[in-house]
Design a protein around this nucleic acid. Structure first.
Lengths: 333, 333
DNA sequence: CCCTATTATGCTCGAAGTGAGTATAAGATA
DNA sequence: TATCTTATACTCACTTCGAGCATAATAGGG
């Protein structure tokens, strides 16, 4: 940290002599940068994520000088793979913890992760890579058929044990409070957005495989979903959380839909992402009053009952959208 | 891009032979990483940002191997400077465009920016660095006294010119549409969250100094606020936008407040950040119904009229907060 | 001491938004 | 044709939210 404070003083102009010294880029430690993609599609009502290495890792690769920018690098790359323009990319988070890779290397790797959305049909075309339901990794996150049994039968009791095994009272209370908030226990409601908090809590409580890696003791109590290499599962959790938040205030779901769809299909996609069921009639009202879609004039009777009107996304809204999510009591004066 | 596609195939397990090759970290191009801080305080009803180099740059410094993580590195560093724990840090964005630094260097610099919030009184103590109203850099962003004159008198006409100077009709329409949305022209409402879009639009229209740097022609039409080195002003815009969004759904304003405050002081802080006035009575209602504060029992008459009750932030809410901002028609079944 | 300016605080009202449910329509299929 | 299934329209109670009115409690000037 000594270095830092020197740099600070330098940068604040206290010592412009020394500045030139540290400004020489070659004296900095070499750092490598990786790009990691959380690529999402919705296939058969399941939210899928693109994986590699037998579904144990997210696609990732080094960031090279040849790339114009982080985003364009990722974009070019993904487009080559899927053979179509990627509709939506968004930066997720940058990680750089020293022991990220788990190895003994002293070289530092910075991982810049992105969230990408793609269409179901286009997703199918790339057979090289494996699409996998993200609930394979987070089985406790799917509440579409009610709270999953793993929650009450496994996770809740284990978390209780973990809380109780703390030495002091305060820690016990703190642990249980965090757990009950994150998982909606003790009659607190389930909040589908807390994906990352939940995963990190399970990690802290050593209830996911990733948490046991350093240790020798085969504490083999591990449970809770398929794991991934390094911290890829955490990155996936970050992506899911971001997406679950975002579908509520930006029309991003449409990036996952085919050009033409019924309102129920749209609803199913939202439900797949949120891991929750929504009220059908109110969902329609919400979509229509925002002018997000327009009728194509066609209908489909593939749905079983009464034929459903087909809709397409009104791309114009993206231009109109002054979607201000105001929660402040603003003054119009 | 050829490299990328190879890497992809390798990573997807198509060619594990080649994998070992590219996995050697030393073969990667050296990349340097910088940390950049947008440190915000509210001083005298003005939202201030910590700057260096005669207010022309944000504090920044290299990320070193000695740092445990990005966040802890930044935190340690800031704490050393301000002499107190930093209440709130949040990662903003990671930039890596090739010509970020504007130089001819081939070395790539990745900049990881953070948003930090600190208290007014504590901010004052660090005299080394300069606090500066962020409206010095974005004069068009302060609408507390109504729409600033620069908007209608300078920016709107200039943006109109810029739109009209496009060759084809479609571009003209597109430019003006984007401008009018971003700046709330043509009776579209002003949206205080569009800070970054506005700055980037001005950049694109070459109405900020930063946009003219590459060019020799002293197109000296430049206007619109104090500039900063490199892309620091863009990073600042990113930070402001993030903060303006966040104060609406997370109680982060309190990080900027002294331990005890009146509701009007709190309101003024929010207004300073949002650049907008809020309805006083409704603001109180909003704060109180969320149980964000509790009375200290004391009052102060420093305010001019009737003495105001003093409040403190209820830290307990941070634990309780199941603040789900649901916009989905959820089913309770 | 009263009047006035100033800020604080309480309360009401109407419009819009939202959760939940009822009712009806339009196909497929037995 | 009866029944099942999904689609779609409409209602209703309740909450939220923008806006404004009214009252309270000080300071300061005449």
């Amino acid at each position: 940290m000594r270095i830092w404070s020197r740099v600070w003083e330098i940068r604040t102009g206290q010592d412009s002599q020394a500045m030139k010294e540290t400004e020489r880029p070659h004296e900095r430690h070499a750092i490598a940068a990786d790009l990691i993609a959380v690529l999402v599609a919705v296939t058969n009502g399941q939210p899928s994520v693109l994986t590699i290495q037998q579904a144990s890792a997210l696609p990732s690769g080094p960031f090279e000088l040849s790339h114009r920018s982080l985003q364009s690098g990722l974009r070019d790359w993904v487009e080559q793979q899927t053979g179509h323009p990627l509709g939506y990319i968004e930066q997720l988070y940058t990680f750089a913890d020293r022991d990220r890779t788990g190895g003994e290397r002293t070289q530092r790797v910075i991982s810049i992760s992105y969230l990408g959305l793609t269409r179901e049909d286009q997703a199918d075309s790339s057979k090289k890579s494996g699409w996998r339901s993200w609930y394979d990794y987070f089985p406790w996150e799917d509440h579409r058929a009610g709270p999953p049994s793993i929650l009450s039968e496994v996770l809740a009791p284990r978390l209780r044990l973990w809380a109780d095994e703390a030495d002091d009272m305060e820690t016990r209370r703190d642990r249980w409070q965090r757990a009950s908030i994150a998982f909606g226990l003790d009659d607190r409601g389930w909040n589908e957005e807390f994906v990352l908090q939940r995963y990190e809590l399970l990690f802290e409580a050593a209830l996911v495989e990733e948490a046991l890696r350093g240790r020798k003791s085969s504490n083999a109590q591990l449970i809770a979903g398929r794991s991934m290499i390094a911290d890829h599962r955490r990155i996936l959790a970050t992506g899911i959380a971001r997406l679950r938040t975002k579908i509520k205030y930006r029309p991003v779901v449409f990036e996952l839909m085919p050009p033409v769809f019924t309102l129920l299909q749209l609803q199913r996609a939202v439900e797949a992402l949120a891991g929750l069921l929504v009220h059908k009639q109110n969902f329609r009202r919400l979509i229509e009053q925002q002018d997000l879609v327009e009728e194509t004039g066609e209908t489909t009777s593939d749905t079983g009952g009464r034929p459903a009107k087909l809709f397409r996304f009104r791309h114009a809204v993206l231009a109109e959208q002054t979607v201000a999510g105001t929660k402040l009591p603003l003054s119009r004066a």
